[in-house]
């Protein structure tokens, strides 16, 4: 556990020292929120949640890419790949919570007649899904530009596609639209359940895939034997 915490602490320090990136990350969801604030209050909640997901996924993508240089050394220094993955995830989840709290407070102050608990749930699921999603992209697309373009595509599709379309369920943040409908339009619990299942499944699968990708990349090669 100590090793996970030390990795988390170091990753958190690295993230918090990228001040200009942090400011952009903090303002990006606000831009999403304000874009629909004037004409459709409910839609602005859906958009701010997508903005949070995009911001945190991008942070995770860059954190994952930046860590590639030092991770082999850490592996040789006695860390196992789960220490590195879960340490980094812990740091990103912490940043995600810090990023979400001001927006939840904003919605509390600015929006009425919505289910606040469900909105908190969307934000929590967004944080849990976005961090491994960005890390997974950094694992399979080592160049940051490619990863950023994929993120842009996913979030863009998420915004423009009709959530009722079955294929949109394959997108990682589909749950935010579904639970958002439950929270804003006061629909039945089916929306909440479907969103929870999709979000929970994506969180579990993405986290597992990140752990597997790191285990493969940082595996002890078979030719190396310790006496």
């Amino acid at each position: 556990m100590t090793k996970i915490l030390v990795v988390a602490e170091s990753a958190l320090r690295e993230l918090l020292r990228r001040r200009s990136v942090l400011v952009i990350l903090l303002l990006l969801p606000l831009a999403f929120y304000l874009s629909r604030r004037g004409d459709h209050l409910g839609q602005s909640i859906r958009f701010v949640c997508l903005g949070l997901g995009w911001a945190l996924s991008t942070a995770a993508l860059f954190a994952g890419s930046a860590a590639r240089g030092i991770e082999p050394r850490l592996r040789l220094s006695g860390y196992r790949s789960p220490h590195l993955v879960f340490g980094r995830l812990l740091a990103l989840w912490t940043v995600g919570v810090l990023l979400s709290v001001p927006y939840f407070v904003l919605i509390l102050v600015d929006q009425h007649d919505v289910r606040y608990g469900a909105i908190a749930l969307i934000m929590a699921l967004t944080v849990v899904v976005a961090a491994p999603f960005g890390l997974l992209l950094s694992a399979v697309l080592p160049r940051e530009l490619e990863g950023t373009l994929v993120l842009l595509t996913v979030v863009g599709l998420q915004m423009v596609m009709d959530p009722a379309d079955e294929t949109t369920r394959a997108l990682p943040f589909w749950f935010s639209r579904e639970i958002g409908t439950y929270a804003i339009d006061h629909t039945d619990g089916g929306y909440l359940t479907r969103g929870l299942i999709q979000g929970g499944t994506f969180a579990a699968v993405l986290t597992l895939l990140v752990a597997v990708a790191a285990a493969v990349r940082l595996r002890r090669r078979r030719h190396l034997r310790f006496a």
């Binding site: 170091s10 320090r13 690295e14 020292r17 990228r18 930046a66 860590a67 240089g69 030092i70 050394r73």
Partner: peptide, 8 residues
């Protein structure tokens, strides 16, 4: 080269 973390 590499082997260090830029922001630490």
């Amino acid at each position: 080269d590499g082997g260090t973390a830029e922001f630490l």
